[in-house]
Amino acid sequence: MAGVLGKIRRWLDPEEVRRVGTTPDYRFSLANERTFLAWIRTGLALVAGGLATAQFLPPLPIAHLREVISVALLLLGGAVAVRAVDRWARTERAMRLGRDLPSSRFPALLAILVGLGAALLVVAVLVQAFR
């Protein structure tokens, strides 16, 4: 818990990441910021999907399935946003220290989750059509 709080404090302290290494070319820092913004848009799109599911989807044959899909999308969107900050800070740190950029399984995990969700929806649509 203390580790999590310390991490949040470090995220909110803009000078923290500047204490290590040397400042890279500003274009690299701005590119890192744009990558962060693209992840935030991904998170916002997931949140929008969750909000739209809750409001515009009719109740599904399985009880509370609509609510479960909606909350899953909302939580995934929130997780993507929080992870984006961590990713930004670690990339900035690596650039300042001249190290390799951190690798991550998260994009692959997100792709698999979205792909599975899409496949499930295709099955649901087909079952509805041929019943």
Binding site: I8, W11, L12, D13, P14, E33, F36, L37, I40, G43, L44, V47, G50, L74, L75, G77, G78, A81, V82, A84, V85, W88
Partner: peptide, 14 residues
């Protein structure tokens, strides 16, 4: 602090 604030607002909407 703009980046963490943006992320926290997104998590807040979630």
């Amino acid at each position: 602090p703009a980046l963490p604030l943006l992320a926290f607002f997104t998590a807040g909407y979630a």
